[in-house]
Design a protein around this nucleic acid. Structure first.
Lengths: 156, 156
DNA sequence: ATATCTGCAAAGACTTTGCATGAGA
DNA sequence: TCTCATGCAAAGTCTTTGCAGATAT
């Protein structure tokens, strides 16, 4: 069976094979789904979207693939406090800018922002360096989120 | 039954009553436990510690009390990625400085740090102001965490 | 006195695991 | 061919809910 013309098909094969993993239909389609949305999908969201193109897929496979993709570094896993994990493509995969999140504690809406990112990055670099030295802690990642009420939820 | 000489007994009564809640033994002891540790306890951690002083307490009450304390703003709830929520006293309660966390993805160890906090706060204020205006988003809280490997886990 | 709080048991929600079948390289 | 991946079902974990009895004010 030929590969679908998925978003990241060409170089993803290499990425998978290089790590000793096989490129399969479910994996391809899950990546397509993640590439094709700007939302922050939960495992079940992904499952439902994938189901359209590939009805026989199981939720287990979705979980296992997402875990794998996080491990490879192709996607990020987030917790926004609503009890389920959410996933989004890592920057390298798309022409996505590095961003952080505004989380509405009223309705759960997530807003991506890139404002002040340059200054943020600068401070983060400095902080990472300082913390690495002081605590001998090898920093690989960071998380910044703001919580509050979105415009809709303020008027209630 | 007289009140225990708990850490925050005096002013907490007021805080509870002012919000229409009753100050009970379980609540008092849970607060004592949270005040008496620098760790980031899970609900079950709290349950076990409270159990020593008050064996009849139920895990349900711990969950309900923690939720209440978060709601009142006396404690913060965190997710460090290990599947369970963790709690720590808010700054006002103790003479605790505002801090953020280093999370070791190897062993789950949490390190509090206060380095660069002043610069961080400054940038955060600026960012909060900018984001509030741009997205009409009323920011109430923020979260900053660094992930990586602690000294022990790097040598494995 | 009475509205709130508690503990137990059961249910709920999300995620992981075991295992036989199926599919990629 | 032979290992890796999948799907189903079942189990696992953390957390929430329902309800009768206990408790604070």
């Amino acid at each position: 069976m030929p590969w679908r013309d998925g978003a990241g098909a060409p170089w993803l094969h290499g990425k998978f094979k290089g790590c000793g993993y096989r490129m399969t239909m479910p994996r391809q389609i899950i990546l397509d789904v993640l590439s094709g949305t700007a939302d922050h999908l939960s495992a079940e969201d992904v499952y439902h979207k994938v189901h359209n193109a590939y009805p026989s897929i199981g939720l287990t496979t979705v979980y296992r693939t997402l875990e794998l993709l996080v491990h490879i570094g192709l996607i990020y896993k987030f917790d926004f406090g609503d009890g389920r994990s959410r996933y989004e493509l890592a920057e390298g995969s798309k022409s996505d800018r590095h961003h952080h999140h505004l989380v509405c504690t009223g309705c759960g809406r997530i807003i991506d922002y890139t404002d002040f990112i340059d200054e943020e990055i600068e401070l983060l670099k400095k902080t990472e360096k300082g913390l690495s030295e002081k605590y001998n802690f090898k920093i690989t990642n960071h998380l910044i989120q703001f919580y509050g009420l979105c415009d809709r939820c303020q008027n209630k």
